[in-house]
């Protein structure tokens, strides 16, 4: 009780570096290393209650907490943006508990925690990308039972998934999955890429960076090591197709980045802007240099 009533600035002394205690970190660290050894396989871990709600990034936060070092430069994004409320909240949490430097610049960050996007700027070796994952099981909506889905992964029995995708094509002429589009990792496990738009899927393939996934409520950790084959599921006659709004960003003019649609007037006029705020800033800078 006494400890709790102390000044908030003392939190960093009351709690361990980056919040989690050493024993919890050990358990998470063991899971992370096994996850890296078995790309795309979901390792169960005994997720802890965090001071943020389940579903708000507790898996990613636990992974980040277990990985952070004092020298890290941390970037946190939600929907591609550094200034969305939950990204702000998570970034503040690690500034307070780990006292790490933070940045909005993708290229300056050594560890990036993300929800729903992969940055547009190409990632580099030894950069760590931590994904917040709500439902880590790609088969969950086809088969709700863990006992069953675990068997399917063990037997590489993914027929159900292909049937679902094929039914979409038969019905609509398209695969009806626009985000959280399943991938096959290292030719073995079907993996949930977290709810990123399928536009981002190709960035996972053969990335030089280390990709770690944390699902707190569902108690799963998985990983995609660098230079790993990550293939979006598709059919020969219906190859996978990344997709974005066919417009230019109305701020930086970029036509190759993922765009958010915004409603700019009462009569419903639409405009499009980069979802990746750092990328948009960088492009804007480049443009002004060119003009000079």
């Amino acid at each position: 009780m006494n400890e709790m009533s102390k000044n908030e600035n003392l939190d960093i002394q009351i709690y361990n570096f980056a919040y989690l205690d050493e024993n919890t970190k050990r358990m998470i660290r063991r899971a992370l290393l096994k996850a890296l050894c078995i790309p795309g396989y979901q390792v169960p871990f005994s997720s802890r209650e965090m001071p943020m709600p389940y579903g708000w990034g507790t898996g990613g936060i636990q992974v980040t907490s277990a990985c952070l070092i004092p020298k890290d430069v941390l970037k946190v994004i939600d929907q591609g943006a550094d200034d969305t409320t939950n990204a702000v909240s998570i970034r503040k949490f690690f500034q307070k508990t780990a006292n790490v430097a933070v940045t909005e610049k993708t290229s300056d960050a050594s560890l990036i925690q993300t929800r729903h996007r992969i940055p547009e700027t190409k990632l580099k070796e030894k950069q760590i990308l931590v994904y917040q994952v709500p439902i880590p099981e790609p088969l969950r909506f086809l088969e709700p039972r863990e006992v069953e889905t675990r068997k399917m992964h063990a037997l590489s029995e993914y027929g159900l998934m292909y049937v679902k995708l094929y039914e979409d094509i038969a019905k609509h002429g398209h695969i009806e999955t626009a985000y959280a589009y399943p991938v096959k990792t290292n030719g073995n496990y079907v993996t949930d890429p977290s709810p990123i738009p399928k536009f981002d899927n190709p960035k996972m393939n053969n990335s030089p960076a280390i990709q770690l996934f944390g699902a707190g409520r569902e108690q799963r950790i998985y990983a995609i090591p660098p230079y790993t084959n990550v293939k979006s599921l598709d059919f020969e006659d219906y190859p996978f197709e990344a997709m974005k709004a066919n417009f230019k960003c109305s701020i930086c003019g970029s036509s190759d980045s993922y765009l958010d649609e915004i409603i700019v007037s009462d009569d419903g006029k639409r405009s499009y802007i980069c979802s990746d705020t750092d990328y948009c800033k960088e492009q804007t800078k480049l443009n002004s240099k060119k003009e000079d």
Partner: peptide
Amino acid sequence: TGFLEHIKLPHYVDFQS
């Protein structure tokens, strides 16, 4: 409650797709 309430968080990237 965490998972239920998380749908209040921005989802505009997914929604856009």
